[in-house]
Design a binder for these strands. Structure first.
Lengths: 344, 344
DNA sequence: CTGAAAGCGCTTACAG
DNA sequence: CTGAAAGCGCTTACAG
């Protein structure tokens, strides 16, 4: 056997055909399960394919079918434990449906715009963009090539992209109403990034509900969805001459930082201060925090996103759709929502 | 314009060639930056390509070059905040080098084995498997097709796969030695999954060092790397007639659960109990936990993994390599390592 | 029921 | 400096 072997020993349908004594087309048909093939040939080809470890080259198939069965997933902000959960749920859901995921990370709309041409070069059949927007130019580009887009926890009206989001505004309202009902009056909001619709919408719902109930003013601190921002913002709030009785935070990590700041200042939670977050990440239910929060319905949001995306991949004539899925207020120990507060 | 337009408007090199009045090969060369092309044609072609929004089809290119520039990344255990960080670092590092990431999730060796044929069908140039192993059969399969594999925080000797891992055994030793030096004697280990080399090696190093210093026995509880497992295991340990003075946990999440259990039982950390973790996830430095832990050097581990993988992609004759990178003991508030404990 | 052939959109020797 | 042609590994009309 002085025969030269190529370095890479990937087996092709031609080799299978050779050994099976059939044409290459027949091999292709056997693996595709074409019903026209005779049982005998099909079994023989399959057996030989198996013994050689043959699997059709998905790249070659994609070129001819013009379908890669790949979804591009643009993720962001892995420092917030909510998003790894989203990422994992997306990949598992898509895999179970036979799809592959090409992963990218991008923090801002600009990153997304820079990245998208690279993603599109790989001919992804669809695009999921988590928690980041895109320019209308790039949105048009996607529409132009017929690549459907779903925005997750973001929306860009008239972009041609579908969007699935937690009802952040409604969530903010629920928090405001629960706090008011429990007698809290002096309230504060610690924001996330100002360019994030999640934070903006949560704040908007919160403020609207306060106004509707006659509460005209409240405190506000900027933030960026991080523990440190929550810690520092709460420090500033709690050192005020008239500190807030309750703080609503743009997300759970921020709320956790706020709780630690309160403890550092010997402000008791919930006796002296109520803290409410948004997301319901695993740490929210850790005993040290026991955080009251608005739970984002991850499973429903993922399910809706995938349904909308695959629907438009199958039928490109479908219109873009926006879905807002309500979150649920999860009552734990960081706020006394069922009784009037101490001085209420 | 009653002309029919195809649904998908992806532009090809042929269209660019047509408009530029050159051959399709010339378009390909212009975009590849072939130096033989005249400046004039190159610029003209590039300008037309730009105006049409043309980008070469990476799938077609891959078919001919037999290189996809895609790395398959098999991730696991997103519930442990350490791994999203790893995932993000990998994608960013690979992207900056011009590589794409095809993402899969798998919890066990069996999952990996089931998944790998799908990954390989996409002709990935290399494979990174995070925190899970693979059968030697699949490892052989990868070697056979010339697809290099790097295992991250796992190793499979003689598999042909490279491996990069934190020096878990050394980390366990450091913890044991620091505790003994500080005077702790009655010690415990809360394990992770028994099939995880990370947990096994940490425990081994811990036990070895104890034995070498004459400590012959210690307590042990099973676990699974989760908060709940840490909480429950610590509950059992602390209710013992002679509870441990210090608990070393297989990872940070487990340690955080253990701290919360201690607090629930009014056992003070670190006064009555030292708790030490492994990973140094962000939550380890949250004020509520202030966890002493062994930091895994993520950046160095990622850098080494990518270097080993790409090295073997460029030169398949390179041998598989195992690298163990030392972790650093980060001293925070959950253990008194610089003084003898109360009753020491 | 099966095969020969075309073609997906590129890259890259081979010519000139 | 540029073009015509082959070919990557498939799928899928088109024949028979």
């Amino acid at each position: 056997m002085a025969e030269r072997r190529s370095v890479d020993k990937r087996v092709t349908s031609h080799e299978v055909a050779l050994r099976a004594g059939v044409s290459q087309s027949t091999v292709s048909r056997a693996l595709a399960g074409d019903p026209r093939l005779s049982e005998a040939t099909r079994l023989r080809v399959l057996e030989i394919a198996r013994s050689l470890g043959y699997k059709p080259n998905a790249i070659a198939r994609s070129l001819i079918t013009k379908r890669t069965n790949i979804v591009g997933l643009v993720a962001s902000n892995m420092a917030n434990p909510f998003y790894p959960l989203v990422l994992e749920a997306f990949t598992q859901h898509l895999h179970s449906l036979g799809w592959r995921v090409l992963l990218f990370t991008a923090g801002s709309r600009e990153d997304v715009d820079d990245l998208l041409p690279e993603v599109l070069a790989y001919q992804v059949d669809g695009l999921i963009i988590v928690s980041a927007a895109m320019s209308s130019r790039m949105a048009r580009e996607c529409v132009g090539r017929g690549t459907p887009v779903v925005l997750f926890n973001r929306y860009v009206p008239d972009s041609g992209a579908s969007a699935v989001s937690c009802d952040n505004r409604g969530g903010g309202r629920k928090v405001a109403e629960a706090l008011l009902r429990a007698g809290y009056r002096r309230l504060a909001y610690i924001a996330g990034r100002e360019d994030a619709s999640t934070s903006v919408d949560r704040e908007r719902g919160f403020g609207e509900a306060l106004l509707e109930h006659g509460v005209k003013t409240w405190l506000r601190e900027p933030g960026n969805f991080s523990y440190e921002a929550g810690f520092n913002a709460a420090m500033r709030l709690l050192r005020l001459d008239e500190p807030p009785e309750a703080i609503f935070c743009a997300n759970d990590i921020t709320a956790i930082g706020a709780i630690d700041a309160a403890r550092k200042l010997k402000v008791r939670v919930p006796e002296d201060l109520a803290v409410i977050g948004f997301d319901d990440i695993p740490a929210a239910s850790w005993a040290a925090y026991n955080l009251t929060t608005v739970r984002q319905p991850i499973e429903r949001m993922i399910e809706a996103s995938v349904r909308l995306l695959l629907g438009r991949i199958e039928d490109p004539s479908l219109a873009a759709v926006n879905e807002f899925i309500p979150g649920e207020l999860v009552r734990r120990g960081s706020a006394r929502l069922d009784v009037a507060p101490k001085e209420g």
